[in-house]
Design a protein around this nucleic acid. Structure first.
Ligand SMILES: [Mn+2]
Ligand SMILES: [Mn+2]
Ligand SMILES: [Zn+2]
Ligand SMILES: [Zn+2]
Lengths: 139, 139
DNA sequence: AACTATTTGCAACAATATTGCAAATATACT
DNA sequence: AGTATATTTGCAATATTGTTGCAAATAGTT
């Protein structure tokens, strides 16, 4: 049984063409994807609404996670850890390359914990770093 | 000379009613502001377009900085350090309260540096933490 | 194969963002 | 203070992005 099917079944989601293709896109893709990337990169064209709903479903089921940006988009990337419904625990650093514009999950770079002032109770942390990625530094 | 005027002049920006009022809003406001907050909280109502352009100008001149989010909004907050044109250096942690929904600049909590894999050259880091803020923890 | 629960596409709508251009305003200069 | 010049603003038109209800289509179940 292939990976795509595997992931969908494990989450108890019914297997549809849209979910299969979108999930595949994430599996094959190196970097994170925005809604717009998905719309333009799927062979079969799905309705925009389906893409929105599929992404939402995947996030809710711990299949993909969101990456915050400062440009009115949300990026999504495959969860590699064993995230479940509502339980995301991929607190890794995300790297945005200024050159190739790719956003990469640095799965092995854990977001460090910091000391907060009295009274602040942190629950989830996100860290996004901009710079030059390892591919682009060569050129 | 008041603070608002001071900031605008120091950046070499011409002083207009829109810029004065929007900058004032930032100075008075506790937390970060989204575009929508600005539209609804300014007494005199400016065109949406003016708000967009004003925010952009302020960011470019190091008057305000952006805070990434995962909900298709960009938050903006006053720069407290001496940022200039294109040179932002407010690498502090941002705290989003799940309760009161405010986003607070923790100016004294510096984003820690992390060790990146070979070839990755970080330039700017952002860290956003969700949780319960010091005001809300009391209730 | 038939039944049921879920998902999809469509349509309509709402919200958000971008651009060109002429009118209004701010600053610089005399 | 008055005029010239540079900058900013509002408007209109357009584009992009996101949401909702509902009927048709499809997937899982028996
Ligand atoms: Mn990631
Ligand atoms: Mn800040
Ligand atoms: Zn790169
Ligand atoms: Zn709070």
């Amino acid at each position: 049984m292939n990976q795509t099917l595997d992931i969908l079944k494990r989450s108890g989601l019914s297997v549809t063409e849209g979910r299969r293709e979108i999930l595949n896109l994430f599996i094959q893709s190196e970097g994170a994807l925005a809604h717009a990337d998905i719309e333009s990169n799927t062979k079969i064209s799905f309705d925009r609404v389906t893409v929105y709903r599929t992404l939402q479903t995947f996030v809710e089921n711990g299949i993909i996670h969101q990456i915050p940006t400062t440009d009115n988009t949300i990026l999504y990337a495959l969860c590699k850890d064993k995230c479940g419904s509502g339980h995301h625990h991929d607190e890794h650093v995300h790297f945005i390359c200024n050159d190739c514009e790719k956003t990469i999950c640095l799965d092995d770079v854990i977001v460090p914990s910091v000391k907060f002032p009295e009274g602040f109770h942190p629950l989830q942390s996100a860290m996004v770093v901009k710079g030059i990625c390892s591919d682009c530094i060569k050129n």
